[in-house]
Amino acid sequence: MATKASRAAARLMIAPSVILLLGWMIVPLSMTLYFSFLRYNLIMPGDNPFVGWENYYWFVTDPSFKAAMVNTLLLVGGVLFITVVGGTLFALLLDQPMWGQGIIRIMVISPFFVMPTVSGLVWKNMFMNPVNGIFGHLAKGMGFEPIDFFSEIPLLSIIGIVSWQWLPFATLILLTALQSLDSEQLEASEMDGASWISRFWFIMLPHLARAITVVVLIQTIFLLSIFAEILVTTNGGPGTATTNLTYLIYVSSLLQFDVGMGSAGGVIAIILANIVAIFLMRMIGKNLDA
């Protein structure tokens, strides 16, 4: 039983974390919100007048905003599709009896531990470079014209790189979920003559549904913030072909020094991420009750 004294002590122990996180949340957030209503550019010093919704208006009506939104959607959607489908297949495969499972699993999950700047540069130079990259060499070896990935299919190339990084994450989580499946249920259905497909469809997939939802939600949070991979490969180009929302805000705020505009973009990014976060929080909250 918790006494009054221990309650007070507990509060005191939680306080530093709460105060820090509260500060980390409220101070920069309210600054972003405040700046987003000012005309505030670091290279044009002035008195930073209040301009209402002007920054939002210019940010949203700029053609690069529409491009960035479409790219963000394609990037997140494309990577989610590849990693969820691929991750499910990988997890099903790794769950089968085999030799050297530990080593194979280590090989599959390794890309997740490669830092984003390294994977961006390695794929860009060693694989996708049309002259010296492996894909270029292979294409030439087979008599094809090598593809210049980052000028012909820039967004697809980035989707590929990011999928390579996140496929292990999806695999690992789905594999964990799959291993918690009661094997007796599977055996019973097998004895009753259920085919492999119906076993997958009616037993495994419903069991995985929750894990898949978690993968989708968590990855979406991270994928909305993809930055380093774009910075080291394409710098958002050619044109705005690979500029996502995060990168666009980075360009406005730290390259064009437009604090007001960058902040307006920041507010939009926060709202977007929150829509996803609400669903994720609900799932986690439910789990906490159990």
Binding site: I14, W24, P28, S253, G265, G266, L272, A277, M281
Partner: peptide
């Protein structure tokens, strides 16, 4: 020493993790 609001505090802490870093890039910078 779980209290009635422990769960809310935990969930709130988690919610700070959902904040996209780029949303606070300018002020932090």
């Amino acid at each position: 020493v779980p209290a009635k609001r422990t769960k809310d505090v935990l969930m709130w802490m988690l919610s700070t993790k959902m904040l996209p870093p780029v949303g606070v890039l300018v002020p932090i910078y």
